[in-house]
Design a protein around this nucleic acid. Structure first.
Ligand SMILES: [Mn+2]
Ligand SMILES: [Mn+2]
Ligand SMILES: [Mn+2]
Ligand SMILES: [Mn+2]
Lengths: 245, 245
DNA sequence: CCTATAATTTAGTCATACCTAAATTTAGAT
DNA sequence: ATCTAAATTTAGGTATGACTAAATTATAGG
């Protein structure tokens, strides 16, 4: 009568490694030991040990050769997307139903993502109407684990004078989110990079909705991702990437 | 600027031990090694090791002497009630907002109870209107961790011919919950123990709302807890205990 | 090609939380 | 009071997933 657990389940640690490797592979083609260590705040020696284990599982979650870093296998990709989907659905759920602000959702989702069942994930998705963006604008993999390709790039790479539309903001620094939110730089906000002052590394950005021009440092300008907008309020596409969460 | 984490946090294993010890101490005055082992489905040797650790923490969570079993300390009682509150709030939340039936909530809550923050617990409680019963009728400790004393006793102890009102049902056996629910034996259902057939251990129970008389075996009759009802639809109190979750 | 530096891996520990098998203690029955 | 059966503890292991220190490998400049 009991249905067999078809879905293999992995430890919290493996799931966090998978998410980080997924992000780094997207960004750079492969995930190096030291980058993984930095992202997870563990020592590189610990990463080596974990990569060896993940590569020797049946099926292997990563393809790994000494000194060459790791990439995800098909199985690893699937698991990574499952965790990412749970994470982003949870973020949106906490935001929409439980009064969480966008700077509070990430930390809570970071723990919940490892313990919710497929059933709960599906119920949350249904309640939210099968959404495709989390509160920071990150794309949510579909139920069949397809992740929309990213076209947006850091605000800091917008040409001076160019218009853009905010697509997403890195979600792992609550203080950045609160600051950026206060400035009106939320997903779908049209902006214009008025100028870039190279000598102090600041970006002067017009926020169309408020009419204000705000001044951003490098850290913040690299945490905000935008698409080109040829004319204000007209949305276009383009390609490039780099991300968080 | 960051608030220091005032609230000590314990491992999942410790939290599950605390819940079980709390239940057993309520039931029998103390929690023995083998009872704890049975409840948690681990070996008694593992329990001894955990009790030793819990007793040596600062502050200790249990008071423990070799061969004498354990009781909760003040700190242990507080932590136990915090986990129990999270568990029962989660059960009700899953039931009310996410379409979980009463036989599905326990398993999911069993994992979530260890990872939700105080903040999330408070948001859920607020959304539910600070409830005092979970879907099985179990009392939810108040925000300041007061647990209403239990007055109900197993249906099997109702005198033959006596009226009762269902107060709660053990929640750890989904099949029992589905069965009992189908019979109409849910919290607040008035019933009457029509007869007890000693020779085959069955209980014949009139369910007032349906008008049906159902026949229960010992296992089910001991999983349903009731209060006396002097006359149908008039509620009274009484004392005794024994429980689950 | 050679070397200095950075990245990575290896080796050896530690803590948590479980296990089995063997030894010990307690309690109940005579 | 003694013995036996049940409960409990001790001893010795396993698997995770972290760490440090030391050894090794890769890479880039000269
Ligand atoms: Mn996580
Ligand atoms: Mn996000
Ligand atoms: Mn639990
Ligand atoms: Mn319950």
């Amino acid at each position: 009568m009991q249905r067999i657990q078809m879905t293999q389940t992995y430890s919290q640690a493996f799931e966090d490694y998978l998410k980080v490797i997924h992000k780094l592979v997207r960004r750079a083609g492969r995930a190096t030991t030291s980058e993984i260590a930095r992202c997870l705040d563990v020592r590189p020696a610990s990463v080596t040990g974990m990569l060896q284990k993940m590569a020797e599982l049946e099926p292997p979650l990563v393809s790994y050769e000494k000194h060459q870093g790791a990439v995800l296998t098909e199985a690893g990709e699937v698991e990574a997307l499952r965790v990412i989907r749970r994470h982003r659905l949870l973020e949106l759920f906490l935001h929409e139903y439980l009064n969480y602000s966008w700077d509070e959702v990430h930390e809570e989702a970071e723990r919940l993502e490892h313990v919710i069942s497929d059933k709960l994930g599906a119920r949350i998705a249904a309640l939210l109407g099968d959404p495709d963006r989390d509160p920071h604008g990150h794309p949510i993999p579909s139920a069949d684990l397809v992740l929309r390709p990213l076209t947006e790039f850091p605000l800091s790479q917008l040409p001076v004078g160019g218009w853009g539309i905010v697509r997403r903001v890195r979600d792992d620094e609550p203080a950045v989110l609160r600051y950026v939110g206060r400035l009106g730089l939320r997903p779908f906000a049209p902006i214009r990079l008025v100028s870039h002052v190279a000598l102090d590394g600041t970006y002067h950005v017009l926020v169309l909705e408020t009419g204000e021009t705000v001044v951003l440092g490098t850290a913040v300008a690299e945490a905000i991702f935008v698409d080109h907008l040829s004319v204000p309020l007209m949305i276009t596409n383009q390609s490039n990437a780099e991300d968080e969460d």
